[in-house]
Amino acid sequence: MSASAAEEAASAPGPAHTDASGAALRLGLLAVLLVLCLVPFLFVLAISFGHKIEGAGWEFGFEFTHYARFFFGAAWPESFSQLYWQRLGYSVYFAAIAAVLAVALAFPFTYFLTRLSRLGQTIWLVILLSSLSLSEVFIVMGWDILLSARSGLPALLDALGITDWTKEIGWFRWFRDVGLASPRNFKFKTSGFATVLTMAYLVWPYAVILLYPALSRLDPSLIEAARTMGARPLTVTRTVILPLVRLPLVGSSLLLFVFLLGTYVTVTVFADPSQHTLAVSIYDSVRGSTLNAPFGAAQSVILLVAAGGFLLAGRRLSAAAAS
């Protein structure tokens, strides 16, 4: 009853604007959108078809060389290379795992956060919001030290005797096989583990903030009702909480995934060069070693289209799930 009343109130018309001022506002918004989003994108799109002058810069043109290089390799048609597909693959791989990890870790935290008192919630949210002011570079530096062999986690594990213990019970070999240890000690740099961990850390506060509204709207009496009907805490989570926040969970994961597709610093520091992502490759083309702006632009367009594709697919999926 009260919920539907609230919905009515929300959908009721707000303060009435005159037609003229409303139109002006819409025009203004459109102009901002054009200048900030569309114009830069069109510029990049135009450059991606441009011509690279060997040993110099580039000029506007209309050729598909750079897209062909992405899809088939630089030496096409003599030989085929899937190098850039691989780069895109690692972008998707790291971003997907990190996004899911961040949301999975943020979910229980946010759930308990919403059960705190108003004051407790405010304090936590302020801490989280202020942590967003830390730049990626700063966070990566922190994890760089935390994971470093001499003074970080490997040294701590060694000092605590855990390294020797895992050797005794034979698990150390497994860590070595997956590349998380050198022959004698744990080694987290460079590794996919360190990359994904840092990326997940990077977006974890966003995950909390994205999940917070949905979880704080969750009616506690639904959970209590399930308990009175014989559901244990885990069953309540599985049968009531998760189904109710499934869409926000999927939506947050998708949003963070798209956000993480562009991660640069984390990947350059923690990922093995063979596992570098498209974002790193784009930077190399535009500013770094290879200096080929049109190719960098082409890779950017492809990354953007891929992100758009994932968002669209996600929307389709959640729309299908909701109906």
């Binding site: 009260s2 009616d219 009496s221 639904l222 209590e224 009702a225 399930a226 009531v240 109710l244």
Partner: peptide
């Protein structure tokens, strides 16, 4: 429950 707490 007062709000009925039916699972939507």
């Amino acid at each position: 429950f007062q709000s009925f707490a039916l699972f939507p």
